[in-house]
Design a protein around this nucleic acid. Structure first.
Length: 335
DNA sequence: AAGAAGTACAACCGCCTTTTT
DNA sequence: GAAAAAGGCGGTTGTACTTCT
């Protein structure tokens, strides 16, 4: 027999997520970890389907997500990877760990596709070839399975890396995800990113809320600075209801925390810890797969396979260069 | 100033694969 | 092994915001 149904569609809320829902979700995941999405709505009381929760987490709340403008480098990466892999956004996103597939997809659809169309239009005007099109067509079909295979290998390596990293974390060493390790370790922890997301969201929300509109200007700054201020909430006895969250006081929001809700917004405290060690000391939860460990912390002897994986990842910037080095003409053949 | 058109992006939908019972 | 749900992915839509006329 199969499994019990995930969520009956009756009473399931749709549309934009509210900050309250975000907090509830983040707090729950902080305590229980991502995964088992089926249990999330019932355990949190969120009137969302499990799929929606997962999507909200992976696309918006997950730590380590970089938002905002794409850099020129990222843009080029996406263009080349799209030419190489097609619309396999998850695969492309695996090369840009700080971006979600949804983000990349959106950026492609809104910016890059038009940009390339323009460029291609120019190219066609300047080079009225047509002779190469048939040959490139054959190249495309010939190389398509190879590119797919290449992506799959990359994904497999990444998955293996993460799996190995988790094993290592068990033996007290911090997990190493080579792909993530490429990323420069920023001042704020990965956890903070999540808080930043919510703080930004709160600011927008306060801006929109007519009730709190008077407070919004000063308070949004306070909220932001509080969230970024290491001196706040570092376990110095600041209760959830005072400090950062109580600044924004739309109804039901303050009460959510002050009424001793099961999911306290510890997330706003953890971020203040310097070099967040991937462990919430209060509940022991590990953000293993999504942490950004530093390379030198791995002192575990490497097996050949692991070494191969790590070497490969460390050389990844060189791979990027390979992508970047590909002439646009070559990529254009794939279109 | 007002409406139209364009843009950006969060979220949903449906399909496919994987996992669980 | 089969059935059914969970999870994952890519395509698409809805809507808020911005720019143009």
């Amino acid at each position: 027999m199969g499994r019990p149904p995930c969520c009956d569609k009756i009473g399931v809320k749709k549309g934009p997520w509210t900050p309250e829902e975000d907090i509830i979700l983040v707090s729950y995941i902080q305590q229980h970890g991502p995964g088992n999405w089926r249990a999330v709505p019932s355990n949190t009381g969120l009137l969302r389907c499990s799929k929606s929760c997962r999507l909200r987490w992976t696309n918006y709340l997950r730590p380590g997500i970089k938002r905002g403008n794409f850099t020129e480098h990222e843009e080029k990466m996406i263009i080349h990877l799209q030419a190489l892999l097609g619309n396999r956004w998850a695969a492309i996103a695996s090369y840009l760990p700080q971006r979600t597939d949804n983000d990349i997809k959106n950026y492609w659809n809104t910016h890059l596709r038009k940009k390339l169309k323009k460029l291609q239009g120019n190219d066609e005007n300047s080079t009225q070839e047509g002779a190469t099109s048939s040959s490139s067509q054959s190249n495309f079909s010939k190389g398509r399975w190879e590119r797919r295979l290449q992506t799959d290998i990359h994904m497999a390596r990444k998955a293996l890396c993460e799996a190995l990293s988790l094993d290592k974390s068990d033996s007290s060493a911090n997990p190493i995800s080579p792909i993530l390790a490429q990323q420069p370790v920023t001042g704020s922890s990965s956890y903070a990113s999540s808080a930043e997301n919510i703080s930004r969201l709160l600011q927008n929300w306060m801006k929109d809320s007519p009730k709190s509109s008077e407070l919004s200007r000063s308070n949004s700054e306070t909220t932001q600075s509080s969230l970024n201020n290491p001196s706040i909430g570092s376990g110095s006895g600041s209760s959830p209801s005072e400090g950062t969250m109580s600044v924004a006081t739309p109804e039901g929001f303050d009460s959510f925390f002050s009424e001793g809700n099961a999911f306290t917004p510890e997330i706003f405290q953890v971020e203040s810890k310097p070099n967040f060690p991937n462990v919430n000391s209060e509940n022991g939860f590990l953000f293993q797969a999504e942490s950004k460990p530093s390379l030198e912390e791995s002192q575990v002897p490497l097996t050949l396979l692991e070494k191969w994986l790590f070497d490969d990842a460390i050389n990844a910037p060189a791979q990027e260069e390979v992508f970047m080095g590909m002439g646009l003409g070559e990529s254009a053949d794939f279109f």
